[in-house]
């Protein structure tokens, strides 16, 4: 698995116990492990190849630990990420506050990273609507404000999980083809004798 080329770096962020690992587990292995809660230590990397519109995209997914202990070094995990799946537990309003924190981090340090808000454990709401911790419309408004996609998933039933990652991969393809076009223009410019400061910057 390792050593292979990765197209898009995707980072999972969110408070501990919201189910980031379960989401990845469902997507990559299509399974849901029942058992005592195992918190992630540091971060786990896993790559998955996905077909998107006639080509394949390899997503390199960084499943980070939610513990505050790793917060200071979380940047190495999301630096250069093309997409961030910011998770919150649909039944836990504090986890949504934490999600907002991550969104701020990303907006400040990774402006090119696309944000996907993901409310997890939607199966818990199926049993009892009143368990919902944050109003759906509030979250939708927030998502619109930050120009993020919003998904509600259940790793237990698999609901919406593939759709979420499919959207991530499709957006990546669409976004990079657009970027390639703009970059080509940039290359044209730099063909001239004086390199722009962008390029001199890259050499340092």
């Amino acid at each position: 698995m390792s050593g292979q080329r990765v197209d898009a770096k995707v980072v999972m962020l969110g408070k501990e116990y919201v189910g980031k690992t379960s989401l990845v587990e469902r997507y990559v292995h299509n399974r849901f492990l029942v058992g005592p809660y195992q918190n992630t230590i540091g971060a786990a990397f896993v790559a998955k190849v996905m077909p998107v519109g006639g080509r394949t995209v390899t997503l390199g997914i960084w499943d980070t630990a939610g513990s505050e202990r790793y917060e200071a070094m979380s940047r190495i995990y999301y630096r250069g990420a093309k997409a961030a799946i910011v998770c919150y537990d649909l039944t836990d309003s504090s986890s949504f506050q934490r999600a907002k924190f991550w969104v701020n981090e990303l907006q400040n340090f990774e402006e090119n990273c696309r944000i996907y808000l993901c409310g997890t454990k939607s199966d818990l709401l199926d049993d009892d609507r009143r368990k919902r911790g944050i109003d759906f419309h509030d979250v939708q408004d927030y998502a619109d404000d930050i120009k993020a996609e919003l998904f509600e998933t259940s790793s237990k039933t698999g609901q919406n999980v593939d759709e979420l990652f499919k959207k991530v991969a499709e957006d990546y393809v669409q976004f990079t083809s657009f970027q390639e076009m703009t970059e080509e223009k940039g290359v044209d410019l730099s063909q001239k004798n004086t390199p722009t400061y962008f390029y001199s910057c890259c050499h340092h």
């Binding site: 698995m1 390792s2 690992t21 990845v24 587990e25 990559v28 195992q38 918190n39 992630t40 230590i41 540091g42 971060a43 786990a44 990397f45 896993v46 499943d63 630990a65 790793y70 070094m73």
Partner: peptide, 14 residues
Amino acid sequence: SSSSFREGEAWTPI
């Protein structure tokens, strides 16, 4: 102490 290393590759400060 953790079964979480069985999934993917872990990269952690220690």
